[in-house]
């Protein structure tokens, strides 16, 4: 890995942290307000690609673990890794990797539609596919209860996927970072 890749990884981990500092939007009837943090997960994947995007989220989790209060709501430390919703945290590096992988697959004809596919599959489906069973197993509640309990978050996540896709397409036009092996990534 080149030094530049390390810098991308470090700075995108910082972006995810900064998005967590934005004030969350409270939604009535939901215990946890909607935050911009998973937007960072989506951006890391769709701007940096699979490997660097996944690593950026691993680094972000390491930063949380060493005690930086950078999860939305000022949470941090090791406690969040053992809470009932820790599965969602663990899903983030995987999600960023999947988004990045889908983005690279479609990079040459990447547009808003492909970006949406990548962000919805990686940023919504993957995150719930890991987070929901985790809560169910870990907190000893039925899978279905855990699933219906998390449904309320889906609309917010879809909105974030759209936002991330718009940004990803704009950034690709202005400053493409993903390079496909063999040919140069030329955009616009």
């Amino acid at each position: 890995m080149k030094t530049r890749d390390l810098a991308y990884v470090a700075l995108f981990a910082a972006i995810v942290a900064v998005l967590g500092l934005l004030p969350p939007v409270p939604v009535p009837g939901i215990p946890v307000p909607i935050t911009a943090q998973t937007l960072g997960v989506m951006l890391a994947g769709s701007v940096l690609g699979a490997r660097r995007g996944g690593l950026a989220l691993l680094v972000f989790l390491a930063v949380v673990a060493v005690g930086a209060p950078v999860l939305s709501g000022g949470r941090g430390g090791l406690g969040v890794f053992v809470g009932p919703t820790a599965g969602y945290l663990y899903s983030w590096p995987v999600a960023a990797f999947v988004i990045g992988w889908l983005t690279q697959l479609t990079w040459r004809r990447f547009n808003l539609a492909w970006a949406l596919v990548a962000n919805l599959v990686g940023g919504v489906v993957v995150i719930y596919a890991i987070g929901v069973p985790f809560t169910s197993l870990y907190a000893d509640v039925p899978l279905w209860t855990s699933f219906t309990g998390s449904l309320a978050f889906v609309p917010g996540d879809v909105v974030k996927a759209v936002a991330a896709s718009v940004v990803a397409v704009a950034v690709r036009r202005a400053y493409p970072v993903i390079e496909l092996p063999g040919r140069r990534a030329t955009a616009g």
Binding site: M1, K2, T3, R4, A7, F12, I15, V167, A174, Y175
Partner: peptide, 29 residues
Amino acid sequence: LSVLVPLVIAVLQMAHTLSEALDARGADD
């Protein structure tokens, strides 16, 4: 949303400058 595009691009440029500074100090691969 309009904050994000300039922020991401600023960060990518920062990362570029940062990596050059690091390489100049012998952090290359």
